[in-house]
Write a protein that binds this DNA or RNA. Sequence first.
DNA 1: CTTGACCTTCCCATCATTGGAAGGTCCATA
DNA 2: TATGGACCTTCCAATGATGGGAAGGTCAAG
Lengths: 146, 146
Amino acid sequence: MNIGDAAKLSGVSAKMIRYYEEVGLIRAPARNQNGYRSYDKSNIHELKFIRRARDLGFTVEQISGLMHLWRDRSRASSDVKRIALEHVAALEAKQREIAEMANTLRHLAANCHGDGRPDCPIIESLADGGGPASPTHLGKGFGKLR
Amino acid sequence: MNIGDAAKLSGVSAKMIRYYEEVGLIRAPARNQNGYRSYDKSNIHELKFIRRARDLGFTVEQISGLMHLWRDRSRASSDVKRIALEHVAALEAKQREIAEMANTLRHLAANCHGDGRPDCPIIESLADGGGPASPTHLGKGFGKLR
DNA sequence: CTTGACCTTCCCATCATTGGAAGGTCCATA
DNA sequence: TATGGACCTTCCAATGATGGGAAGGTCAAG
């Protein structure tokens, strides 16, 4: 099976399959005589695993750990559970950050009459500071999760 | 005032100040005889504006639009409000994505006994698919906001 | 034999941010 | 005055996951 078929069956683009190989998330597959990568059912299985983990917001590095546990027959479910719960905590932290930003903005927008007049507390708050527009400690690490 | 002081007073790193200048978010400031960038109070004001907007999760491009409105005395508050509410909607969408991921993971983790035994529904769900581990349409555009 | 659909590798861009190297400037202190 | 350290400058690179594209090889159907 060529990379295009593997991509269709797994839902992972050919580009990303090569990328995952490059960064060591998956092992380099066998090659045909013509140099084409050749995949089999187990590779598709593995790629689907990766895609599902990505959909759950795990980073490539975290997936690497999960795949290790997956392949390790003597793995302890407690390890997997710990990783999953850590990830849940990270997701919750990000949720809180976003909620705080959204609340601040909603509050500002609610006080902006929104007609043609130029007065606008949103702009004023950004410009003059003070009040809810300065979380100061938030927004850090934004974009590090996945 | 040199760039280091501007960074301290505004809360924007010197690196980022130069970056914002490079991408055209701020105009190039005057230079001293020695070639050092020289900033005044209005520059600091502007940089604070940028930092607050970044803390609210606006992208540089969005901030550019906001600053345009800020500088434009005849701006309409409806424009600002529209941008703010669009951003709130984007934040809410991201919140929903993250909530869905977290719920799925929490569900899986709750069914993982988490002791030393190898059975683990988290890994099994990732490996075999089916069920909540396949949002399929989510996770797209994750990381595009801000 | 041509055409089109594949495949290969390699490079570049994204976005905001940080890091570092190499070199110039300024000021205080020994 | 010399020296050291704290600044400043520009330039280049890396991050993470992904997409885009060029240049060239391969294959199967028409």
